[in-house]
Amino acid sequence: MAPASSSTHSAVTLNINGEKYPLSVDHRTTLLDALRERLDLTGTKKGCDQGQCGACTVLIDGRRAVSCLHLAVAAEGREITTIEGMAEGDRLHPVQQAFLDLDGYQCGYCTPGQICSAVAVIEEHAAGWPSAVTDDVRPEAGPPPLTADEIRERMSGNLCRCGAYVSIVQAVARAAEAHEETAKEASA
C-alpha cells in the first residue's frame, strides 16, 4: 500500500473522555466516523450524516456539537466528551439516570445524542442563555424558567423517530431540577 500522502492525511491526537487517542486520519474523516469506525466508540450514532437529526451529538470543549459535520482533524486540541464519558464509574450521569427512570426512549437509537444534548441544554440554561421561545431576551429580564416549551425548543436539534418526546421532555426537566438543587446546595 502506498504511504499516506502528508497533504491529505494528518497524525492527530484526539482527547476523548479524558483519554488521548493518537490517530492518522484522512482529512475527509468526520469526527463521527473517527469515533465509530476507528476508535470503536460506537455509542455516538449516525442518523442523517447531514446535521439534521442530532443522533451524533457530542460535547466539544463542553459545548454540544454534531460530530457528523465536524472534521476529525479539526478536533485536535479539543476536549471531546461522548456518551461513553458521561457516567462516573458505575454512577450514571444524572441526565442518564433521568432518561432511565422516566423512559426517555423507545428503541434507544437517538438516546446518546439526546443525553449529550440535554447535558448541554442544562448548562446553557444555567448560564442564562435565552432560546427562540424566550419572550424577552434582554438580560434585564433574567433567565427564563425551563418550562416544557423551553425544553422542547432547546432540544429541537435532536429528532426521535420513535416519538418518545413526551418522556424525553420529562427526563430533561427532572435532570434540570436536580441540577438546580445541587447548585443551590453547593452555594448554600
Binding site: G51, A65, H70, V121, P130, S131, A132, V137, R154, G157
Partner: peptide
C-alpha cells in the same frame, strides 16, 4: 439589538449554533 439575538436563535439547532 434584541432582534439579532432572536434571529440567531431562530436558526438551526443548539448544536449547530455552537459550531
Amino acid at each position: 439589538y434584541p432582534a439579532l439575538t432572536q434571529a440567531v436563535l431562530a436558526g438551526a439547532s443548539g448544536q449547530l449554533r455552537n459550531m
